[in-house]
Design a protein around this nucleic acid. Structure first.
Lengths: 154, 154
DNA sequence: GATGGATTAATCGTGTGCAACTAAATTGCT
DNA sequence: AGCAATTTAGTTGCACACGATTAATCCATC
């Protein structure tokens, strides 16, 4: 057996991401409450406000979500009037997801609300760009590992 | 209406945390597969390997999880033999959660497995301690905001 | 044109996460 | 002692997240 010492730093790093992600989620949940949107629903709309329509597959590769997550989420967004789903005629396997006029109308209002909430924070000692860069670096490492066959036992 | 310009950086930061957290989760999921443990179950055990027993409330404040999440999670850990739950005799409201002998036996094996997997990553350009510090700083901001009454409309 | 393999979205099952509520026990106050 | 407020864990309902499977469609090759 190899080293059995707890890796405090690595675990702490992971736990920090885990906790921060939950806190951000809660923050956006509050900010988006007037629109009855969750954070995953919000980033889905963000992607669609940039490019619409997109297939479920395209959306999923932008957001790193599979159809098992997206399909029910999209159905909820559709029911609330933000998007429409229509099976492609060229390729009946695909479903094109588009923002509705309602979503286009509401867009600036949503942005304004999110901005107002973000303005309440003062990220003083935090170097955004460098922080994001470091996170991407860590994610790169995780990607490299996951794709490699690190799992050799049962 | 205030500024309606998308806050790319803030959203990117949040999305980075969101994605990194999911990737870490997946990484630990793979690493812990031999033990049939999820990441939340793992950090629960980590906490209990340090201090056992703990009440559900104490565990929850360590992990930032409420009883709605912990109770079913703990029941699963109990069913798999890692922990035991016993209602306190001094205060019947509380439930004391303890690691079992099985969990104590397996501890080093789990640590070794996690360490082996972490060793496959080379966090070259990443300054751990500084990264963790920055994340904590961001979380501090989020805490300050969440507790304030930033939500003024319906 | 038929057929096997690939692609796409949907479905199913399990496990978080959390808000809201409930039930039981404890504490505090009079 | 008696009763209201508080604390604690559990329960319920909803929304991700994802692995595994399914069903329909498309494509390639014959």
């Amino acid at each position: 057996m190899s080293n059995t010492t707890p890796r405090r730093l690595d675990d702490q790093l992971c736990f920090a991401f885990y906790s921060a992600s939950k806190k951000f989620n809660h923050f956006y949940q509050d900010a988006l409450k007037p629109f009855h949107l969750t954070y995953p629903q919000y980033i889905t709309l963000l992607a669609l406000w940039e490019t619409s329509p997109m297939t479920v597959r395209e959306l999923g590769s932008h957001l790193n979500l599979d159809s098992g997550t997206l399909t029910p989420l999209l159905k909820r967004l559709e029911k609330q009037g933000w998007i429409s789903r229509k099976r492609s005629e060229q390729d009946e396997r695909q479903v094109n997801v588009s923002v509705t006029d309602y979503a286009l109308d509401k867009r600036d209002e949503v942005y304004a609300r999110v901005n107002d909430c973000i303005d309440l924070m003062s990220f003083d000692g935090v170097d955004y760009q460098q922080l994001i860069t470091q996170i991407h670096q860590v994610m790169g490492e995780l990607d490299d590992i996951s794709t490699k066959d690190l799992i050799h036992e049962a």
